Computed example of a mutant assay.
Amino acid sequence: MKRTIILAGVFAIFGLFTNTLNAQEEEQTASAASLYNDGLAKLKAKEYDAAFELMGQALETADSSSETDIKVMQLAKKNGAIAAYYVGTNARKADDHEKALEAYQQGLDYNPGFYANYIGKAQALEGMDMMAKAVGAYQTAGVACEKAGKADKAEQMNSKAENMVAVAWGYKDWALVKDMAAAYLEGGESADVHYYLSDALLSDGSKDDALMHAEKAIELAADGADKYLMQKAEILKSKGDTAGSIEAYKMITDSKYVERAKYEIGQLGG
Rank of each mutant, 00 (worst) to 15 (best):
34 S>Q: 04
243 A>C: 05
14 F>N: 03
226 D>V: 10
150 K>W: 00
221 A>R: 05
210 A>N: 00
70 I>H: 00
156 Q>T: 06
31 S>Q: 10
108 L>V: 02
165 V>T: 03
96 D>R: 09
218 I>M: 06
175 A>V: 07
65 S>M: 00
105 Q>K: 15
207 K>W: 04
241 D>H: 03
186 E>W: 01
180 M>G: 02
155 E>L: 10
105 Q>N: 13
147 K>N: 11
181 A>N: 08
90 N>D: 15
65 S>W: 00
142 G>T: 08
206 S>A: 10
14 F>H: 02
57 Q>C: 00
6 I>A: 07
208 D>Y: 01
25 E>F: 04
87 V>R: 03
134 A>R: 06
257 Y>H: 10
75 L>F: 05
109 D>F: 06
228 Y>G: 08
10 V>G: 15
22 N>D: 14
61 T>E: 13
251 M>I: 00
17 F>E: 10
8 A>W: 06
115 Y>E: 15
27 E>T: 05
170 G>I: 00
81 A>W: 12
26 E>K: 02
117 N>V: 06
171 Y>A: 15
254 D>T: 08
229 L>M: 07
238 S>K: 07
119 I>Y: 09
55 M>F: 08
215 E>N: 13
76 A>H: 06
60 E>R: 08
177 V>L: 13
207 K>N: 05
123 Q>A: 12
269 G>A: 03
